[in-house]
Design a protein around this nucleic acid. Structure first.
Length: 208
DNA sequence: TGCCAGGCCCTCTTTAGGGCCTT
């Protein structure tokens, strides 16, 4: 797979349209099947963290008072990932915050998101849950740190993505996994997954 | 203080409802 950036936001809530803001961002760069670079920062957007969110993430108002401005962090992380295709767990959520925070610094996303949650639903349908933590446990991947902190969650989503890539190659005989193929798979209706994968299989001797 | 959204996907569906995920 080409170079991709796996990102994760911590935020004050679920919806930027309702006034929620990002509090932490992490980006993990995958290249050649391994992590080659990382970025992580708390970010001060000048809003208060609700108590139930602080309990969930461990990110407090006191921590954010010491953090760099959200605008500085978004410029830095956008430059860090460049035009690499993006991946996130439940990407619809992270894409909304990514786009909303970029808009505040008058920048626009240039690349597409792929979603490890939708991919896991397709490729690991037998998992009891498709929450990030449940998938890490199900696949016996290492826990990278505290759940609901940006870098730990981004690292674990990156590990999961590599596992899904390996699954495509070993179990489904996909010749080459690209970000574009991941987006095709996640968007394929379940009953058409096999047909979708068949088009990307390595040429077997019987096919020659 | 507590609340809020939105897309995917299943089913006792499609003229809909509700669970799963993200914080």
């Amino acid at each position: 797979m080409e170079r991709v950036a796996v990102i994760d936001f911590e935020t004050t809530g679920l919806s930027p349209a309702m006034g929620d803001r990002a509090t932490e961002i992490a980006a993990v760069i995958l290249e050649g099947g391994r992590v080659v670079d990382r970025y992580q920062s708390l970010m001060n957007a000048g809003v208060r963290v609700p108590a139930h969110i602080e309990a969930l993430t461990g990110i407090s108002n006191a921590m954010l008072r010491e953090a760099p401005p959200a605008s500085d962090v978004m410029r830095a992380v956008a430059d860090f990932v460049g035009d690499s295709p993006l991946v996130a767990h439940n990407a619809a959520f992270d894409a909304r915050f990514w786009d909303a925070e970029l808009a505040r610094i008058t920048r626009k996303r240039q690349q597409e998101f792929a979603c490890s949650l939708l991919l896991a639903r397709r490729l690991l349908p037998q998992a009891p849950s498709h929450k990030l933590g449940a998938l890490i446990e199900f696949t016996r991947l290492p826990v990278a740190g505290r759940y609901h902190r940006a870098l730990a969650d981004a690292e674990m989503a990156a590990s999961l993505l590599l596992r899904l890539e390996a699954e495509l190659v070993a179990r489904h005989q996909v010749a080459e996994v690209s970000h574009a193929l991941l987006r095709t798979i996640q968007a394929a209706p379940k009953h058409q997954l096999e047909r979708c994968l068949a088009r990307h299989r390595q040429a077997a001797p019987a096919d020659a």
